[in-house]
Design a protein around this nucleic acid. Structure first.
Length: 272
DNA sequence: CACCATGTTCCTTG
DNA sequence: CCAAGGAACATGGT
């Protein structure tokens, strides 16, 4: 989604200036080195890999990849050069007639020239490389609770804490079940559920009215849902964040438990 | 004050 | 080697 919206706004444009306002979020950790590497680079393409956004740049020294990650609270958008910066603006890339803002309240996100995290990622869940057979072989080798396993980006890229709970509920599988204990039918159901949940999220993301230019029609993209549109939690999530509410499948009370320091939501009646 | 939060990485312990 | 648990990072909402 973010990539789809930023791509037409950034491709072909040249970075004229780099302002690092929070050193922690950039690599190399010397902000001047990042600025030197990026200045004068042209954006050739944007792509997504797992939860990472990849800026494919063309520089005088050849191609260069800039890797972004939103962490939990990151946002990226394009706005006017004169627009005021938000309190937690972490990095600003200046172009000729607009600026790219990476804002991150908690500063867990990254904007980095280090591409090594990409190499560690498992297959994209919606690509042909992610098959039920692959999933079965990887789960067979692990005694880890399946919910925790789904968060491992080396298994499959892009599943976060929300979608892990959602996929397990849709597949009717207990989050606590050791990965190796899933029967073949369960692996197949989980494989289908992961793909359905992520496809649904992408579809929703492509249709929700976005907030352009903080409500004005100035043509600049701001990544966020427009005011008055229903949020994803209210509309689509079946168990996440719904402790004590009725399961949409069977009506039993949805429970919350903590696994690997993350909340898991599940229905004790229809997930086994 | 308490607890919670869409993520990743590192460390310790067993 | 593996897994579990905790902490760190840092800010804000309830």
């Amino acid at each position: 989604m973010l990539v789809g919206h930023l791509r037409p706004l950034l491709v072909g444009k040249t970075i004229r200036g780099v302002s690092v306002r929070r050193d922690k979020v950039v690599r190399p950790s010397k902000p001047n080195n990042l600025a030197r590497a990026l200045r004068g680079a042209r954006v050739a393409e944007l792509s997504r890999r797992g939860k990472y956004i990849v800026f494919h740049l063309q520089t005088d020294n050849g191609p260069l990849k800039l890797v972004g990650h939103l962490g939990m609270t990151g946002r990226m958008w394009l706005t006017e050069l004169e627009a005021p910066l938000p309190k937690h603006a972490a990095v600003v890339l200046n172009f000729d007639s607009a600026k790219f803002v990476f804002e991150d309240t908690r500063y867990f996100g990254r904007l980095s020239l280090d591409t090594s995290p990409l190499a560690r990622l498992g297959p994209e869940p919606l690509d042909s490389g992610f098959t039920a057979a692959y999933l079965r072989s990887r789960l067979k080798a692990s005694r880890q609770a399946i919910k925790v396993k789904l968060l491992d980006q080396r298994l499959v890229a892009g599943i976060g804490n929300i979608y892990a709970s959602e996929a397990l509920h849709r597949a009717g599988i207990s989050p606590n079940l050791p990965a190796t204990r899933l029967r073949n039918e369960q692996v197949r159901a989980l494989w289908r559920a992961i793909r359905a949940v992520l496809r649904g999220a992408v579809r929703y993301g492509s249709t929700v009215p976005l907030n352009f230019g903080s409500g004005n029609s100035d043509g600049f993209f701001y990544y966020g849902r427009a005011q008055g549109t229903p949020d994803y939690y209210e509309e689509k999530l079946r168990v996440y964040g719904r402790e004590n509410q009725p399961c949409p499948k069977c009506g039993a009370r949805i429970r919350r438990r903590v696994q690997a320091a993350r909340s898991t939501f599940y229905c004790p009646n229809c997930q086994h």
